[in-house]
Every structure is written in C-alpha cells, then in structure tokens.
Write a protein that binds this DNA or RNA. Structure first.
Lengths: 150, 150
DNA sequence: TCGATTTGGTTGAGCGTTCAACCAAATCGG
DNA sequence: CCGATTTGGTTGAACGCTCAACCAAATCGA
C-alpha cells in the first residue's frame, strides 16, 4: 500500500523542490558568470584551501564534497587544465593521488568568494528570520544524518 | 565590505547543501533505476497528468516545472522519442505548441509514482517531526517568494 | 499600416554528471 | 605465502542542461 502524500505534504514537497532548485540555480549561474566556475568546482577549491598543505586525497575530497569518485576525477582534470589544481603522488599509498590547490587556484577562489558569499547571504539568509535559520540547520542536519544512515 | 558567514551560518549552509543534494541525488537515482526516467522528466509527466486534457502549452509547462524553455524543449523531444509525450499545434496561437501526455506516458507515470512517493516519504517526511515539516514548508515558501521576487 | 519589438519555441555546441568497465596497488584468508 | 577480494582512482560513452543564436508569429507604436 503506497503511503501517498496528503495535500499539505504535497505543498511542502513542491515548495521545497522549487525553492531549493531556484536557490542552487541562482547561485550556480552567478558563480559561472562572475568567476567562470560552477558551484561544484567552487566547493572543491574551498575544501582544498582549508586542508593542511592545501591538498587532499582524492577520495577524501570526494567525500567532503559529496561527490562520486568519478565526478571528482573528471572535475580534477578540468581544474588541472585550468591551472587551479595539481595532482601529486601520494607518499603513503602508491595507488593514491593528492589533489593540490595551486597559487592560481587560491587566487581564483579568493576572487570568487566575496561575490558568492554575498549571494548566499542575499538569496538565503536575508530571506529568513534567525529562528528559521536555526530551524533550517536542524532540519538539514537531521536529514543528512537520515540519508547517510540508510 | 563582504558580509562573511559566521561559524553558525557556515554550518547551516553546508548542512543544507549536503542534505538537499543527497536527497535529490537519492530520489533521482531511485527513479532512474526503477522507472528509467530522471526526476525532472517525472515532474513534467506529473504536471501534464494534472492538466485539463493532459496537455499544456510549452511555456506554461516550463514555468510549472521551473525549467527554462530550452530545457523543456530538449526534454519534450526525449519524452516524445520515448512515446510518453506528443506535440500538438496550439489552436489559439500559431507559434504555440501543446505538450500532450500520451496513454503510454500516463502508464509510465502510474508505474513510477508509488515507488517515488514512497521514496519521498522515506527519505524526507519520515525523518522529520510534524513541526519540522511545517517549518520546512514555511521556509521553502518564504525562500521561493524571495527568489522569484528579486 | 508597417516597421520595430516582444513572445513562443527550437537548435547545436559545449559542459558536467552518471554509469559501467577497467587497471593497479593493497589487504585478506586459508 | 599466494590467490581472491577490496580499495583508490581513471576512462569513455551516453545523457541532460546551459547558453547563445536563431526563426516565426504576434503585438506595439507612430
């Protein structure tokens, strides 16, 4: 027996779909226009910039950005072609690869960050009350735990 | 002056990113696996199935599904190739096109719906308390209004 | 009424993602 | 130890989306 959605749940689900899609598309388009990179690549650069030595194992980077290994591998190739990332051998595991943020990559990230952060603030945080922001954090954390759990 | 995110906002934003992406990817993969269609195409079929005559103007359908005209046009071509949608001339506007859900398309949707709805329930609604569901609806509606407004 | 603009929709190239297949190095189990 | 499995990562094809360019029909405005 299918547990169908009632009218309220329908509305919630559709509102969530529409708003999260619109938010991501807006931010992605802004980033593409102003910094010449999609949001997924921005996230990769951010994670690398925060890592010790500005470098991470490919797998760890994939986990951190919530992407498949394949996706990250393709992305790293593009970022490498752009001169923003370099691949190094991993000293402790001969299968491993280290993705390293180059100086050019760091500069590209530094140039992109202010505009993007401003976008996140304008399109997300400015729209919500402090209470709603708090609710959104709890909901998101609950959801993330639920999804990785099952 | 960039209004940077503080630690709490960072956490909220990253949790939202991770959870919404994980949710959509999970549902998309399930739908692709079980029904052979991406979530975007499922949404198109749903909207058509709810419309009078199971048909809609391309532009209205694009608006309803929150997609660009180009995206919808490409999607309609694929759905047409699959035999799930047909294009008809629009009687009132010679530029117009009517996307019409075929019987095969309706059947495909009917076959896909139970599994997908169950997925939405399992991965989203089952994880949240009734209060959180209500909060999520309000947040999403606020956000959607804010995004289409500016 | 006729040129200019707007609206409705399509097209093709380029990009990023997925999926399955694959290879090599590391680890497990008898 | 050595064969089997697992882990780390890459590859290429197929797919869906974006963007810009485009065409045709409708509408605006002088």
């Amino acid at each position: 027996m299918t547990r169908w959605l009632d009218a309220d749940e329908q509305q919630t689900w559709r509102a969530f779909l529409a708003s999260s899609r619109a938010l991501m598309e807006t931010l992605d388009r802004e980033l593409q226009r102003d910094a010449g990179m999609p949001h997924a690549y921005y996230e990769i650069l951010v994670r690398l910039s925060e890592a010790p030595g500005r470098s991470m194992r490919m797998s760890d980077l994939a986990d951190a950005t919530g992407s498949s290994r394949s996706r990250l591998s393709h992305a790293a190739s593009r970022l490498e072609a752009a001169g923003w990332v370099r691949r190094d051998e991993c000293p402790s595991d001969r299968r491993g690869q280290l993705a390293v943020l180059t100086d050019d990559g760091f500069a590209a990230l530094a140039a992109a960050a202010p505009g993007h952060v401003e976008g996140v603030r304008r399109h997300l945080f400015d729209a919500l009350s402090p209470a709603q922001v708090d609710q959104l954090r709890r909901i998101s954390e609950t959801l993330a735990a639920h999804l990785t759990g099952s």
